[in-house]
Design a protein around this nucleic acid. Structure first.
Lengths: 190, 190
DNA sequence: AACCTAATGTAGCAAGTGCTACAAGAGCTT
DNA sequence: AAGCTCTTGTAGCACTTGCTACATTAGGTT
């Protein structure tokens, strides 16, 4: 009942997904070697062996997670193009607030905090993820939009502000702001 | 050369400012009792004595910091009213990006991350600070603004998005977005 | 089979974690 | 002065931290 896992050689590549899963669930800040190792079915000894030290592990992990995020965005590209900015914004907002996205969002704010504190690897990962998201958003813009690039950047700013206000309990404030801006319309629910 | 500090009885009230100073500089996440105690000129033993346990300490500390933030905002109310939303936004943005604000902003993202993770006390503090900031912003709105409440909420959302993109290395993206939105004008520097 | 290197297990270390037991001092009331 | 409560110092405990020393296996090459 314990290890259905095929007992094969480990490597960074096989470890990273398991580590990422643990980190997405339990956070990055409090992540220490032994719990991480247990989640990946190894020992702290082996983590150090494969990654050298913890700092490198975190760096590699962040890079990997950023890659996963990028891939997830690629998956989530809607086939049907959208016709208004409101619709476009609603779509990406729904994406960021979807329940399956929530563990990742929780991790995301830790990454932002780490970037602000200058922790090694954090800013690079955050930067990459935001860049990817911008591209994604540009591709989702209405085809007749007068300024898709600027519009996407504008919507990104508004989106991130909305998400943050949401996580600190001011979702209503963001919503009212969006209404006032015209990017959300009163018809749609919260 | 060491303790010019008047040797008086300690209490939560005398400790909190010192603890807050340490936390603003070194962060909340990695804060442990002994460094905190040293920063406040006591021992971990005393911190537990006064606060009961660490969780309560952090909660009280966050509440105190939120109060300090609120007071700081009150101090920073400009006497001259502003005439355009652009000007208003530029003012609050400059406030949030001022160099003396930066240590606090670093802490802020930790608070947001803590809120997202559900750590005790974090969300309350974050909520209070955002509420206060909204009120502040409403008071700073142009007197002839057609919708000061909605406008302030809108600007809050945009502001927080801008700040976050900034800390993550995408200040340019936020700026372009603001330009496209009309809330920033090309004349002003970055 | 001999061998050599990569991969893993077992113990452990020095430092740090939150917190406690115990006792002693400080200042007040009586 | 005696006693009493509030405050503080000294040790220490059980546990976790990142990381290392040393020995052992596993798997492929010759």
């Amino acid at each position: 009942m314990s290890e259905p896992q095929t007992k094969t050689k480990m490597s960074k590549e096989t470890l990273l997904p398991l580590l990422a899963a643990h980190v997405i669930e339990h956070g990055l800040g409090g992540a220490s070697l032994r719990p991480l190792a247990k989640a990946a079915g190894t020992s702290d000894r082996m983590l150090i062996y494969h990654f050298g030290d913890k700092e490198t592990l975190v760096r590699d992990l962040l890079e990997y997670i950023s890659g996963v995020y990028s891939a997830a965005l690629d998956m989530a590209i809607g086939s049907d193009r959208v016709t208004t900015r409101q619709e476009c914004f609603a779509r990406i907002l729904a994406l960021g607030r979807g329940p399956q996205m929530q563990p990742f969002m929780t991790l995301w704010w830790e990454i932002v905090a780490g970037s602000a504190r200058g922790l090694p690897g954090y800013k690079d990962a955050a930067e990459a993820m935001m860049a990817k998201q911008l591209i994604w958003l540009e591709n989702q813009m209405p085809k007749d939009d007068p300024d898709p690039a600027g519009g996407a950047q504008y919507m990104m700013t508004l989106l991130e502000g909305t998400l943050m206000l949401g996580t600190v309990g001011h979702a209503r404030m963001a919503r009212e702001g969006l209404l006032a801006s015209g990017l959300a319309d009163p018809a749609e629910g919260d």
